[in-house]
Amino acid sequence: MSFAFLCHHNSFIIYGSLEKPSLSNWSRVTHMSVGSGMIVSALFAVAGYATFTGYTQGDIFENYCKNDDLATFGRFCFGISIITTFPLECFVTREVVSNVFFNGTLNNHAHVAITVLIVAACTALSLAYDCLGIVLVLNGVICATPLIFIIPSACYIKLSTESWFHGGNLIPCLILIAGVFVMTTGLIMAVMFPQDCSHGAEMFYCSVSNLSSSTSSTDLLLQNSTEI
């Protein structure tokens, strides 16, 4: 349910972009994409933790040293994948711009120009700041949490003919309370205890001076663990 409400703003646009929009095609596309994404994420998570254990970072590439050529190639491939998938997040913004300023109709030139403008503005902002984690945190607690938990539950309870304490409204009430708790707690934690940004900082085992620069990150970690 959380995933469905979090992604629903893109759903109709993606559905309309299918060559043959139908429920069967939509079901196949969504199951294949989410399923393959889950498998890839699980493989990277398991392999990353098995290699670096307690030192595993949220971004597994942060665990590798700068002199690791294979990791550098992996970062390049990851960057290409982000470049090709990021425009998907701009679909809704472009749709809003189209409806507000162009009455929902865009010719091909305006379509391309607005898309490039949105992507360029986001790219420039991301390059200007080294760490934008706080943006994701605030977006999650202020936007995503109400969208996923609070608003749907409140609408269900409002439209229900039964009282709040009726058995049929018990689950929506619990979800609503949990959503308010998560939103309040998350906002307080984000403001009072902001996360440190360690993007680009090499791990301690990368700074060992008595090892050859050609040694892989995994070998460095194993040797440092042995010494400790």
Score class of each variant (00 low, 15 high):
87 P>I: 09
134 I>D: 09
131 C>G: 06
113 A>Q: 09
176 L>T: 03
184 T>E: 01
124 A>T: 11
186 G>R: 01
96 V>R: 01
108 N>C: 08
121 A>K: 03
170 L>A: 14
180 V>D: 03
153 S>A: 15
129 Y>L: 13
67 N>V: 03
174 L>H: 00
130 D>F: 06
125 L>I: 13
86 F>N: 09
169 N>A: 03
194 P>K: 03
115 T>V: 07
123 T>S: 13
166 H>T: 10
189 M>T: 09
167 G>P: 00
180 V>L: 14
161 T>N: 14
172 P>G: 01
66 K>A: 10
171 I>F: 12
199 H>C: 04
69 D>A: 12
108 N>A: 11
189 M>P: 01
188 I>W: 05
171 I>Y: 11
94 R>G: 13
194 P>R: 02
67 N>H: 13
75 R>H: 05
78 F>Y: 12
140 G>T: 12
192 M>N: 02
168 G>L: 05
82 I>Q: 11
149 F>L: 14
169 N>G: 06
179 G>K: 02
147 L>R: 04
111 H>I: 01
156 Y>F: 09
104 G>Q: 05
171 I>K: 12
77 C>Y: 08
203 M>L: 10
70 L>N: 07
138 L>R: 02
186 G>Q: 04
112 V>H: 08
201 A>E: 12
105 T>G: 00
110 A>Q: 15
88 L>R: 03
109 H>P: 00
121 A>C: 14
113 A>D: 09
67 N>W: 10
171 I>H: 07
111 H>S: 15
200 G>K: 04
118 I>S: 04
153 S>R: 03
175 I>D: 04
127 L>C: 13
181 F>A: 12
107 N>K: 10
178 A>T: 12
141 V>K: 01
100 V>S: 03
152 P>G: 01
